[in-house]
Amino acid sequence: MVSFKRKDVRPIPTCQHCSSTWSWHDTLKSQPLLFGSGLTCSYCGKSQYLTTKAQGRQVLLSLVITFSIIAFIEHSAASTLLTFISFIIGVAGLILLTPFVMEVSNKRTLL
């Protein structure tokens, strides 16, 4: 039987200090507002930072969602309410999917 699950891919971040896998909720709570700011492990309290690869994934995810919303608005005769709802859905999607593209390390890196 063939397994399509790669063993080196972690769906949610793992602390580099204590090797604890963060829950989706903990990851969502610790999301940084800026790339340079650290995340705090809820198990050991040590600071963790987004890797360059994870920062790139977040930028790509943001761009895909943003351009999808713009394309939806441009190619439809959407009302203001529908435009607002699509924006809210896009932001919610970005927030909900971000923990799955995060990867952390002990060292601060900038994109």
Score class of each variant (00 low, 15 high):
Leu94Pro: 00
Leu81Ala: 11
Ser62Lys: 09
Leu33Phe: 09
Tyr49Lys: 14
Trp22Asp: 02
Thr40Met: 05
Trp24Pro: 01
Thr27Asn: 03
Ser86Gly: 12
Val59Pro: 04
Leu63Gln: 14
Phe84Cys: 12
Ser47Ala: 11
Leu34Phe: 14
Phe84Ser: 15
Tyr43Asn: 12
Ser42Lys: 09
Gly38Gln: 04
Ser79Thr: 15
Ile70Glu: 06
Gln48Tyr: 03
Trp22Glu: 01
Thr51Val: 14
Ser76Val: 00
Phe67Ala: 13
Phe84Arg: 15
Pro32Asn: 03
Asp26Leu: 02
Gly36Cys: 10
Phe87Lys: 14
Thr66Phe: 08
Phe35Gln: 00
Ala77Val: 08
Ser62Leu: 15
Leu39Ser: 09
Ile69Pro: 00
Leu97Tyr: 05
Tyr43Pro: 01
Leu50Val: 05
Ser30Phe: 00
Gln31Met: 09
Ser86Pro: 04
Gly90Met: 09
Glu74Gln: 05
Leu82Glu: 12
Ser68Tyr: 05
Leu96Asn: 00
Thr80Arg: 10
Ile73Pro: 01
Leu63Asp: 07
Ser42Asn: 08
Gly36Asn: 12
Ser86His: 07
Gly36Tyr: 12
Ala54Gln: 06
Gln48Met: 15
Thr27Asp: 01
His25Arg: 12
Gln55Arg: 02
Lys29Asp: 00
Tyr49Val: 12
Tyr49Trp: 13
Ser47His: 07
Ser47Trp: 05
Gln31His: 05
Phe87Asn: 07
Leu82Ala: 15
Trp24Cys: 03
Leu61Gln: 07
Ile88Lys: 11
His25Ser: 10
Leu39Glu: 02
Ser47Val: 08
Ile65Ala: 09
Ile65His: 05
